[in-house]
Design a protein around this nucleic acid. Structure first.
Lengths: 339, 339
DNA sequence: CTGAAAGCGCTAACAA
DNA sequence: TTGTTAGCGCTTTCAG
């Protein structure tokens, strides 16, 4: 009743146990004849090599740890899907860790568990990684790649879109539409994406001689963004006529408040633009203009770098930055002159 | 530069290697003194037991395979989050498999990989599992639990909500509102949820002496549901004044078509009710009435059964069925008399 | 309670 | 190319 092992197969095929191992280890030398014998016996016995035992020796588990804060934001559930597909192609598996409370202690705990399972690489999506943790991984030769986040520390690999440029595009677009009172509900100011996008906004406003009609940290959270929106329209006078929101996930919340609570029309009364271009942004009820983050390219870059690092943990880290595009939908529109 | 092992710790603590193992194996007998010595040395060396080596012996990996078709549907991304949290509590880890094309061959391949990694249990969310596959798992003593699906085969454990009852509630609710021309865009008719909900609809209509104003399979896919909606309003005359949609994910698509393409009002012209009660259903732009699937209870039941089965793979399978509730929001409303 | 010794199932030298 | 042998790092008998 217990699992068939390579010995069982060897016995039946009339070869040595190592012959069996070799036929299942790519790059090993086996004669076609032996291979055929082994494969036949293996098939009859329904044999599969034990990946655990293999990992113990090779030191490689073919498992990637994917650490992500949450999946509420469609950008991350999409990212998980695309990553999963790409990694499957490379014969890697995903151990997924959801860490909603991103305290450093929590992160420490997660990394401990990753180490226990000998994962080949960590992909940290939208999770802050302290320098001490990076050091710990480095000393263990455990590669780590930041996805959609970057760190000033240039010794760590990261893949992001060009958030600074994207924010500049979004802001300039609103300005070109004729908006003068533009507010920004920022992404979490403790994250690189949130900071880069806010920088792009501030700079573009200044370059155009405009003063922001309010800047509030939305923390990338729906509830906080909703509160920020209410604040923007009750405490600022005149209220904004356009809002650049730090990501799509918050932009949906902003739109809901503007339409359902404030009874204003989008885009007639207020233009709203988001960031990410998640699938939901294209749905009829939102039709949200936004800046795209090229998920496929970001994932490809991530996997490519992962393979490099697994192969050689001392390979030089890279910081990949991919340009996104302005996606114009129906949540933004040209101002009439003299509003 | 290589990893610290139990031998390193033993040497430093001045005890045997087995003593180290025992202090890290719960249920083993060690004197407090030895334990203290070991823990101290382990801490100084930053030692962590190698989970891979442990699995090789115990046969238990503390890893659960979570197989899910996709994460586009918010019900599943939510489910993954809640499951992840519950399993973490029990010290289990999740190897996630996304299998968008649910062919049996694909499933076979996934199961092979699961076996390779010696997962302790398979949780199959919304994935069809053929009987041959179930048999294969059984012969390997690999427990499997269906989440949000059930099979006629009563030898396999499953956790679902009471979809038949929920569909009856939804339909009766529409009838009580005064609707007479009620259509049903069904969930995929190859799935138990899709079938149970359709049965509940058909039966309730019949019992109330009503004939369905169209029944079309939406396949749980956004695009298909959109097409079905168009069909319902162009090919049926008079068109429906209420639609029971097989899940929320499709209901959003239906609402988008009704409002953006057909230029009809919800709920004034058409009532729409969904199924699942995903977070998005509560967002202002949709405000979708629906039947809840009690995710927390479903997850708790799943984890409980999983622990039982891991402990004893021959434990009797259970089919858990949890009742959901009607959630009334603003996508449904009472018909005026004589419309 | 403790240490010595025997493997878990496999890969990777090594010699033939 | 093949079989033999020695481990990977750990848990688990078995004596003491």
């Amino acid at each position: 009743m217990s699992r068939t092992t390579s010995i069982d197969v060897a016995l039946r095929a009339g070869v040595s146990q190592s012959a069996v191992s070799r036929t299942f280890t790519k790059g090993a030398s086996v004669s076609p004849k032996t291979s055929r014998l082994v494969l036949k016996a293996a098939n009859e016995l329904n044999y599969r090599p034990n990946a655990i035992a293999r990992s113990l020796i090779t030191g490689k588990s073919k498992i990637i740890a994917l650490v992500v804060a949450y999946l509420d934001n469609q950008f991350y559930s999409s990212a998980v899907q695309v990553l999963s597909k790409a990694l499957k192609q490379e014969d890697y598996h995903i151990l997924i860790f959801l860490t909603p409370n991103a305290t450093d202690k929590e992160a420490q705990k997660v990394v401990n568990e990753l180490i226990d399972y000998q994962v080949d690489c960590i992909i940290a999506a939208s999770v802050a990684v302290s320098n001490s943790l990076v050091g710990r991984c480095k000393s263990l030769n455990l590669p780590i790649i930041l996805f959609n986040r970057h760190q000033n520390n240039s010794s760590i690999s990261s893949v992001t879109s060009n958030n600074f440029l994207g924010a500049k595009q979004a802001t300039q677009y609103l300005i070109d539409l004729g908006h003068k009172r533009i507010a920004h509900i920022t992404g979490w100011q403790g994250s690189s994406t949130g900071l880069d996008r806010a920088r792009g906004f501030e700079l573009t406003m200044k370059r155009n001689g405009l003063v922001p009609a309010g800047v509030i940290d939305g923390m990338y959270k729906r509830e906080v963004a909703m509160q920020a929106t209410r604040h923007l329209f009750t405490e600022f006078s005149p209220p904004p006529d356009a809002i650049f929101v730090g990501n799509d996930h918050m932009a949906f919340a902003v739109m809901d408040v503007i339409r359902e609570e404030l009874r204003l029309k989008i885009p007639e009364d207020v233009s709203v633009i988001g960031y990410d271009n998640v699938p939901l942004a294209d749905w009829g009820s939102y039709n949200l203009s936004t800046i795209s983050q090229p998920l496929n390219e970001m994932v490809n870059a991530t996997v490519k770098q992962m393979i490099k690092l697994v192969d050689n943990p001392k390979a030089s880290p890279v910081q990949v930055k991919i340009n996104g595009n302005l996606i114009v939908r129906k949540s933004t529109r040209k101002r009439k002159i003299n509003v």
